[in-house]
């Protein structure tokens, strides 16, 4: 298979259109399984009661917020280095979904922090670096929107995305580097094994659901970006159906 064939907007547009229902379907199926595990299969936590059930959306959203940023910075960097239009469009398409995931991580974190720590918000290293991630996404989107020439917007925003990528490892390691209120990595839950495994299973199912959703949303948006940017191109005007 020639992957470069799909590096042009014209060939990628219909391919993305075919992939969207699959990823969205996977996201919905896994989401339903994950929610079933989250609310019915997983038992009440002996320490945090039922408040811990927020973990099933908090952790997937937080992981996706960081992962999407890295993918966005990667495509922005490819666009900057090789001047490929589709790469920059992909970076733009990922940013709003990344910002949404970051907001969900912060919001669910606040709703989890309040009953467990007694505070909606603390200026803890993990929380603060995640908030900076939200500002990076919003700054990136503002910069793209502020520059009229799309090619210049691609380049300027790519530099911002690449410089901002330094924040992602800071978020990830913040619980190790600083003494934070935020708990450490939840993937190594040291609780009763039977409980931990069903909670872990639910969380991982939700991670894959969020992952599939993010891909579907980014593909839907990149199709919009392609139509928006290429609307004068002959192939868009001659395109039938879809």
């Amino acid at each position: 298979m020639n992957w470069f064939k799909y590096s042009s907007p014209q060939t990628f547009y219909p391919l993305a259109g075919k992939m969207v229902p699959w990823f969205m379907g996977v996201a919905v199926c896994l989401g339903l399984i994950g929610l079933y595990i989250a609310f019915f299969a997983a038992p009440t936590d002996f320490q945090q009661g039922d408040a811990y059930r927020i973990i099933f959306i908090h952790v997937p959203a937080a992981w996706m917020s960081m992962f999407i940023y890295m993918v966005m910075a990667f495509w922005a960097g490819i666009g900057l280095a090789f001047n490929t239009r589709l790469s920059s469009m992909m970076a733009h398409a990922l940013a709003p979904t990344g910002a949404l995931m970051t907001f969900i991580a912060l919001w669910t974190g606040a709703f989890w922090g309040r009953p467990t720590w007694g505070a909606w918000w603390v200026w803890d290293a993990r929380l603060t670096s995640e908030l900076i991630l939200l500002f990076l996404y919003l700054g990136y989107l503002s910069l793209v929107a502020a520059i009229d020439d799309p090619r210049r917007a691609d380049k300027a925003s790519a530099v911002l995305a690449l410089v901002g990528a330094i924040n992602v490892p800071i978020i990830y390691f913040s619980v190790k580097w600083w003494n934070t209120l935020h708990q450490g990595s939840s993937i190594s839950m040291t609780r009763a094994p039977s409980m931990a495994s069903i909670m872990l299973a639910g969380m991982l199912v939700m991670v894959f659901a969020f992952w599939a959703y993010s891909i579907a949303a980014a593909l839907m948006r990149v199709r919009c970006e392609i139509l928006d940017r290429e609307h004068n191109a002959a192939w868009v005007r001659q395109m039938e159906g879809i």
């Binding site: 039922d50 408040a51 927020i54 669910t108």
Partner: peptide
């Protein structure tokens, strides 16, 4: 009721669902 944490659990889930 979510063991008394209903506001927090449903507040977190509802806003996430609405936004998505």
């Amino acid at each position: 009721a979510m063991g008394g944490y209903g506001l927090y659990v449903w507040g977190a889930y509802a806003i996430s669902a609405v936004l998505i």
